[in-house]
Design a binder for these strands. Sequence first.
DNA 1: AAGGTGACCGGCC
DNA 2: TGGCCGGCCACCT
Length: 113
Amino acid sequence: MKKQSPETDNFFERVYEIARQIPYGNVTSYGAIAKALGAARSARMVGWAMNASHNLDDVPAHRVVNRNGLLSGKHHFDGTNLMQQLLENEGVKVVDNQIVDFEKFFWNPIVDL
DNA sequence: AAGGTGACCGGCC
DNA sequence: TGGCCGGCCACCT
């Protein structure tokens, strides 16, 4: 988990590209990104790509949560509450690892793209 | 080369 | 009402 041939991470790039376009103060779900990629059922892959996005600072992974609005990947961040802190810093209310009014802050990549 | 895994989603029991 | 199961695609060992 360190190399990933530059030729094969085309899929990853696609995910990063979407995640990078998430507006400040907005959030989206893995499924939404998956649909934007044309693979609605491959939401898992999006999460996988996010896992690799740890190496990149251009990808705001904290703005990506599951369709439940739950900070599923917060455990993967440096700190335990770093993800929540970042979201709150952008004006997104987070309670108990869950985004409040998720639908209100939700950003659909398909619409913007 | 094959098997196992994963920050998910949706449907079914 | 809530928990279980399968599917899906790419990456890693």
